[in-house]
Amino acid sequence: MPPARSWRTYPQTYRLEAARCVKCEKVFFPPRLVCSKCHGRQFERFNMKRTGKVVTHTVIRTPSDEFSGEAPFAVGIVQMDDGPRMTSQIVDVPFDEIKIGMPVKLEFRRLSTEGEAGTIHYGHKAVPVRV
């Protein structure tokens, strides 16, 4: 991924910045230009809370080249407490303990790198909430 493409979404990848439609309150992550529910054009930006629940999951055993040294790893779809769903890796938990409905928190992690000499892409991954 070229540096510009990664950089322009830092508010989302680094701070989970989402946008709430002013008219109908639907929340979008990443933010959009037009609301898919009411076609409104005005939004309020805010950083989502870093908590949610697992909605579905799998374990990737045959990854793409970019992630070849990391398999097997778990990914899932997380329903964020603030509304939108996002795709995320699920880490620091044995695969057989990942369940639909599991509460998670999002932690800052490395997502990938552009090889040995390229930039490092940071973002968030889901970890189980432990009390």
Binding site: P63, S64, V75
Partner: peptide
């Protein structure tokens, strides 16, 4: 941008649908 960046592959997406369908 929002699925691929996390390492989700094509089979991964359908696998997640399968997990949800099975559940």
């Amino acid at each position: 941008r929002w699925e691929g960046m996390h390492g989700v592959t094509f089979p991964g997406l359908y696998a997640m649908m399968a997990v949800a369908h099975m559940a």
